[in-house]
Design a protein around this nucleic acid. Structure first.
Lengths: 192, 192
DNA sequence: TGTATCCTTTGACTTATGTCAAAAAGTAAA
DNA sequence: TTTACTTTTTGACATAAGTCAAAGGATACA
């Protein structure tokens, strides 16, 4: 999915607005393993992924990485609180495949929000959609068993398991990779 | 904090817009233990709490309640995904104290978003603020020890522990009330 | 096509947290 | 106050999941 189609999913922009909006994004081709943002750095860009996969991850004191979110093609990617609140990012953002992305700075985005009521609406709808997705993960972590969490993840990120490593997925789900490996093998590690 | 001050925190509305917006809210005085929304029901209202505390909670098959969020005075309360996506709510919404709240329906809110660019901006900023708060909880649940999660909660909901029961807090933090009780007593139940 | 590296699985053991049950403390009602 | 009810704490025990370590597999590179 390209950026224009993505924008139109949320709001039916007049063609000239759409063109103006898109002209403020920059296309970038990035390689696998490229880090877009470092922990501690303010994330000043919002990225749209046309093709590829990325993730945000947190680095613990003991050196372990914990995946916070996956970002796939047709979605926006950013260190959410850092970008919106302009505070240092708790996460790294990195691409996990060679990818085609479009980026826009906070300043340009704010200018577009101020310029077009439609764009402001898009921003609102995008935020509420992200909010819904984050709440779904929260629910999975808080109410569900390890097995159910794994299934939730497959609906949120279809066939992600063929694209990223087991360890990345396990930490996203709040478990070790050994536990996830055991869950996958014999469907369930517990009684049920 | 009243509704007018809350709105002004985010956007500096012209006085007549502010007045129009506020006129679409309805004031309600509700008693402790009042349920605003049932699980399975579409939540059609957004509530602003002028005074009081509420929570959203999920009811498991085994009859246990799990608190998903607390809502205190000066904040909006709703079953977020249900309200924004108009799907059945996974949660109950209930007040935990006698409270003064203001409500607005989805229809009226949408009309205000369409009418005023400022209101649309408010909606966007409110969503991103909620998003940030939900992400903070997600981080707490995913990266932090039981003790750290308890401390995170105290910063998110100052002195909530004097207002709601231990059991509600424990389930919010994804632990049993016995565990929380032990954490509180001897600062930490683990090595550190 | 072999060598190095990375990723996944498996096993043995440890530990944090849950479960169940009962006692203690706190609060409200008569 | 006494009684009843709710909430919190404590104890003994069970268990899901983590840790550490090593063996297999897979993949990339040279």
């Amino acid at each position: 999915m390209n950026l224009s189609d993505f924008l139109k999913q949320f709001v039916s922009f007049p063609p000239e607005e759409l063109e103006d909006i898109i002209s403020h994004f920059e296309k970038e081709i990035v390689q696998k393993n490229k880090t877009l943002v470092n922990q501690g750095q303010v994330c000043n860009k919002l990225y749209f992924i046309e093709e590829g996969v990325g993730r945000s991850y947190y680095l613990k004191e003991d050196g372990k990485e914990i995946t916070q979110w996956f970002f796939i093609e047709g979605k926006f990617m950013s260190s959410i609180e850092s970008f919106f609140q302009q505070v240092p990012s708790l996460y790294y953002l990195e691409m996990l495949e060679d990818s085609t992305i479009y980026s826009i700075t906070r300043e340009k985005l704010d200018a577009l929000f101020a310029k077009y009521h439609d764009m402001e609406k898009f921003g609102r709808l995008l935020s509420t959609e992200m909010l819904t997705r984050v709440v779904n993960k929260l629910n999975a972590l808080q109410f569900q068993t390890a097995k159910e969490r794994y299934e939730y993840m497959l609906t949120e990120f279809p066939n992600i398991s063929n694209r990223v490593s087991l360890g990345h997925i396990a930490s996203y789900l709040g478990m070790t990779q050994e536990t996830l490996s055991r869950i996958r093998r014999h469907d369930t590690p517990k009684k049920s």
